[in-house]
Nucleic acid binder design. Structure first.
Lengths: 377, 377
DNA sequence: AAGGAGTATGCAATCGTTTGCACTACTAAA
DNA sequence: TTTAGTAGTGCAAACGATTGCATACTCCTT
């Protein structure tokens, strides 16, 4: 390998571009660059024979600039579609005002519930003059970690996040907070950290759903839920249990199933229905599972809802696509997203103290459709 | 109104913060700021008693820095979770290398097909070391325009976009191109502009679907499509028509329906089935419409697929939620998103000349399920 | 011993925007 | 005619990272 110092000397002697540059960065002979670039304040200043400060002030309607000068500069900017470089601006002001970019981490864009939340986040952020940088963890811890690094590098003003399923450490979140960025969790909360959060009222959602099943005549109601170490599962189970107790029905552990997807539901349900004392209804923690139950029950010759009632949780696109349409608990993802943005930006803009921890609960709504019987007997 | 000059004088005399500042910018007494901030190279330099240049070079593994110094600096950075401010870096290098942010404009996040595309875009961008700024036009032209302004202000390296339904002007796209940003359209192409685009093979998708219907014994196949001025509708209709012609069936105009949603399908279909010469199958431009047809047909006492076959287009979540599951054309949104990113970044990184216009077509795939009959008779 | 080669570092300018301060040229009152 | 007040501009220093150049030092050769 050739010595750098020798190169440097030659470079000086012959006035070449330093060669070690090429060793560090691949030659950026990007022929696509440099043809066109965005207009800057300096360009305008040069063109109109004033200083960049004057341009800056004129465009901000500062009263320090004379009216005609102001008008002249604004007209030029308008006619040439000038837009100030926000990155430069937020760099300059980084000590007094943060950037107008919000980091958003989502486990999976294509998951319906998450897409409604993302939509709510985007809508509210946009309304308050912010843009979002959205990334998917794809349920992988290392992706989540890497995304957090990016967000830190990009100096977003704060981060809104739902954890990947396998996340158990949270140094990466701590890092963001150390850099002064507020953090808001939604849906899948980080239990190891006492932070801002927006969740759905899982308890009442489940309670009302089960109360409705009881009201329409069901007595043996199965619960299909995820592993009980998840907050969501716990809360929904408690709502289910309390609704039963309120109606004087004591919960039966054999009706408490660990099952949260359609494939498993189609395996488990036949056994359950063939048992000595089968259920007459099911409450599932998501629509996917509910649909699995629905079609299994139908396939086994039972009528829904006449012989068997079902209630899901989510109210996604599928709920009205199945036959009969699914009675389910609406999760209002849009609202969850909006509340998360409000919590975050209220802190960013100093309307709420940084150290105050906000925990909001979004009300759910029971959507009654065809998999449960009508209320009037 | 009080004079500014007077204020300025007093300000100078008493060494106050200039009052006109308060008139321009609302008081930024953001008590949340300034407590914590992200670490910078300067901080590290000060701490270790070297210059910022040395830190910069050490972190970039420059051979100009002595090995032990390099190790010392890198260790400090690692231990303190230092991440360089990307915005500052890309500002400095804005003339030789663009930022690593891609602007993405989507009509609606919650629309399943768009969410798969967005997912594909994010995945591929992430793989190539970029992040996305995602925004929804919500089908409103003025939103789209405003988002383009933002993207320009944020100096993204390029924009990937699908038009809002009511967009007919395209100065806002032109502006982006004038600033040197490559543009890639997907799904809803801007017909007024000759630009990079990724679309799905609508023609072959429809052709294969209809050919399948014919192969399984259908003879009178209805076409449910959108208004014919949309590219998508035209291409799918042509595929439908050619498949019929190929089989020696002449298209019947009375079977060509303008209908692209479930509600309309539920209104139109009964009339159609009650007509003198009713169809024995339907091909719809999306799953929503197909599901509307499906349930209407079932409600009228016909069996699907024995008496009537149906094929949709999209293969969204709903396609496997309905009963029977829907035969449909898979649009492979993920692939569309990835191709769009590749076109864009190949230009940004100088692998492809800027002025070369790329037009890619993503192959569709027919997913045969329960709303069409088996192929063996 | 002197000069040159080689090594490791710092200085300063740059990117585009913002803003405290200094400065000039007025006007009006004393 | 001072002199104070006022209006309008420009200069220069930030923000954080990068990098061409200068420099300070060591070591080797003649």
């Amino acid at each position: 390998m050739q010595s750098f110092a020798l190169l440097k000397t030659q470079i000086r002697k012959y006035k070449l571009t330093p060669t070690y540059y090429f060793c560090l960065h691949l030659p950026t002979n990007n022929s696509n660059m440099s043809e066109k670039r965005a207009l800057t304040m300096k360009d305008i200043a040069r063109e109109l024979g004033v200083s960049a400060s004057t341009v800056s002030r004129a465009l901000k309607d500062s009263p320090l600039i004379s009216p005609d000068q102001r008008e002249r500069i604004q007209r030029y900017a308008r006619e040439h579609n000038f837009l100030p470089n926000e990155l430069a601006g937020s760099l300059r002001l980084s000590h007094s005002a943060p950037s107008k970019l919000i980091g958003v981490i989502v486990p999976q864009f294509t998951h319906y519930y998450f897409s409604t939340i993302l939509s709510g986040i985007e809508e509210q952020a946009s309304l308050r003059g912010y843009r979002i940088i959205a990334a998917q963890s794809k349920e992988r811890f290392e992706h989540e970690e890497h995304i957090c690094q990016s967000m830190l590098g990009l100096r977003v003003c704060g981060v809104i996040v739902s954890q990947a399923k396998d996340t158990t450490h949270y140094e990466h979140y701590q890092q963001l907070m150390n850099a002064g960025m507020p953090l808001v969790f939604y849906d899948r909360i980080c239990t190891g950290l006492n932070t801002n959060r927006v969740v759905v009222d899982d308890y009442m959602g489940a309670y009302n759903a089960v109360a409705h099943l009881i009201q329409t005549g069901c007595r043996r109601i199965a619960f299909y839920g995820s592993d009980m170490h998840l907050e969501i599962s716990k809360n929904r189970y408690n709502g289910y249990r309390d609704a039963l107790l309120k109606a004087g029905i004591s919960p039966d552990d054999s009706l408490h199933l660990i099952c949260d997807n359609r494939a498993d539901a189609e395996i488990i349900t036949p056994e359950l229905l063939a048992s000595a004392n089968p259920p007459d209804a099911a409450f599932a923690v998501n629509d996917d599972t509910a649909i699995g139950i629905l079609y299994t029950v139908k396939r086994m010759g039972l009528r829904v809802p006449e012989d068997f009632s079902i209630c899901g949780f989510t109210n996604g696109e599928r709920a009205i696509a199945c036959d009969p349409p699914l009675t389910t608990v609406e999760q209002r993802g849009n609202q969850v997203g909006k509340e998360a943005v409000d919590i975050l930006l209220d802190k960013v803009e100093g309307l709420t103290p940084m150290n105050k921890i906000e925990k909001r609960v979004v009300k759910t709504r029971l959507i009654i459709r065809g998999t449960t019987r009508p209320i009037n007997p």
